[in-house]
């Protein structure tokens, strides 16, 4: 019996060694892929910085676009983007979160609910240019909102609503059922339960989804071109009904010029866009961190 036992053990050990080796190999592969992605991103950032930073100064931020590169700036585009993203946030967050809350907490989980669910998932995959066409037909022409900030914001909101709804639903779904039951057992209504317990518990997840969605909106160009945001704007929008331009459009405009200087200006504008984006993300992380700490 003894030799057989030893034999069995040694094969088990070889196979264990093999399994460890395979695990290490896989970890190595994952690390390589991760770093390859990060390196590519670094390379892009490096190239943009090299080209763009020499134009990046106060004059660049506070000037309107111009046909002379040394006079050109992104004032109107930056202000337009800030306007746009604020309006998009105001429109899309309440609608998106309320929809998710309704679908998860209040709506009957029947055939209709499943159909809505599938449709929302499909909408998330529709190309942005299609939303641009809808925006042009419905908001610009149909409702007569013209080529205004509000048209752009409504179009962008349509574009990112599916993302917000899906992310919020997932965040709401993982709130334990036992918490809802605890609230119901204290004589809470569905609304009180959702407002006081489900929403706060799912807040970090919802915030992540919202930020991803807004980040997408801030970089989208196609729908804005479609609804006819202007490419040359030498004034600041003063209200939601004003015409506007936005950073991606300004970048697109500069890149399509033949002169090298304008390409560098585009790089400078990309830096500004990235800073806006990172500021938004950092704010979200800060808020989420505080919310999580508060809940303990």
């Amino acid at each position: 019996m003894a030799p057989r036992g030893i034999h069995a053990r040694s094969t088990a050990e070889t196979s264990l060694r093999k399994r460890h080796a395979r695990a290490r190999l896989f970890a190595l592969f994952c690390a390589a892929v991760t770093w390859a992605g990060a390196a590519l991103l670094m390379l892009l950032l490096y190239q943009i910085s090299v080209n763009g930073f020499k134009w990046f100064d106060v004059q660049f931020l506070t000037s309107f676009p111009s046909r002379f590169p040394y006079k050109a700036g992104i004032k109107s585009a930056l202000v337009g983007t800030l306007w746009l993203i604020s309006l998009v946030a105001i429109i899309s967050i309440p609608i998106g979160v309320a929809t998710a809350l309704y679908l998860e907490e209040f709506g009957k989980k029947g055939r209709l609910g499943r159909m809505v669910e599938i449709n929302i998932a499909n909408l998330a995959g529709v190309p942005s240019i299609v939303y641009g066409i809808i925006g042009l037909a419905v908001f610009v022409r149909g409702l007569g909102l013209e080529r205004s900030l509000i048209s752009g914001a409504l179009t962008m909101s349509l574009l990112i609503l599916p993302v917000i709804i899906i992310a919020s639903r997932e965040a709401i779904k993982v709130v334990p059922m036992t918490i809802r039951h605890a609230a119901f057992a204290l004589g809470a209504t569905r609304w009180q339960t959702a407002w006081s317990h489900v929403l706060p518990a799912s807040f970090p997840g919802i915030l992540t989804g919202v930020i991803l969605a807004l980040s997408r909106a801030i970089g989208e160009t196609a729908p804005l071109i479609m609804i006819g945001a202007l490419t040359y704007v030498a004034f600041l929008p003063e209200g939601p009904m004003d015409a506007f331009t936005a950073l991606p459009i300004q970048i697109f405009n500069w890149v399509s010029r033949p002169q090298e200087e304008f390409h560098e200006l585009a790089a400078g504008a990309i830096i500004v866009l990235l800073i806006v984006l990172l500021t938004m993300n950092a704010t979200a992380i800060f808020i989420r961190h505080r919310a999580e700490k508060k809940r303990g």
């Binding site: 334990p176 605890a182 004589g187």
Partner: peptide, 21 residues
Amino acid sequence: PVEVRRNIGMVFQKPNPFPKT
């Protein structure tokens, strides 16, 4: 039923405090 649960309380099998103070 909300009125019923106000008068008839419940404690569950697993402790389920709210994630609050």
